[in-house]
């Protein structure tokens, strides 16, 4: 096992923290992707990658921030940018994909998908649910 040369000055607590965040982040990403392969329908599968984009990315970004801040090699601008970028973009892509899938399923008349009810009926439904 080759040790990491540029990390020789890293104190033990920081090395352990970095290792912990790396293992948690990468492990959750893997679990999410396993779920992505195993879950039966598309609407269930859309939940699986969010593990990788929430805690997976968070863990790796945290590990990298601790590593380079403790070593003080460089400012951690990239990590912060990547974290913000993934947090903002993932919901957008997932929502667009989900809406596209709903649209296609409705166009095909898939019975498992809630249909696009006329707005008037839904208003009454909404009011009824609120009154309950």
């Amino acid at each position: 096992m080759s040790s990491i040369e540029h990390a020789a000055d890293l104190p033990a607590w920081a090395a352990l923290a970095v290792a912990f965040f790396l293992v948690v982040g990468a492990g959750l990403t893997l679990i999410g992707t396993i779920g992505f392969v195993r879950l039966p329908t598309f609407y269930e599968r859309i939940h699986a990658p969010t593990l990788g984009t929430s805690w997976g990315t968070g863990g790796v970004v945290m590990a990298s921030m601790i590593f380079f801040t403790v070593l003080s090699t460089r400012p951690v601008v990239h990590e912060i940018l990547i974290g913000i970028f993934v947090t903002v973009t993932t919901p957008v892509t997932l929502m667009l994909l989900a809406r596209a899938t709903l649209h296609r399923d409705r166009a095909e008349g898939n019975p498992d998908v809630p249909g696009e009810a006329p707005a008037q009926v839904l208003v009454e439904d909404g009011a009824a649910t609120k009154a309950d």
Binding site: S2, A7, L10, A12, A15, L16, A19, L22, A26, L30
Partner: peptide, 28 residues
């Protein structure tokens, strides 16, 4: 000691992520 753990953690993370990429490619 802690540096050995760190380098093993990195290997573990890389293996996990490569496996995850392979599974995503399988689904694709």
């Amino acid at each position: 000691m802690s540096h050995t753990i760190l380098s093993w953690a990195m290997v573990f993370a890389q293996i996990c992520l490569v496996l995850a990429m392979a599974l995503a490619a399988l689904r694709m």
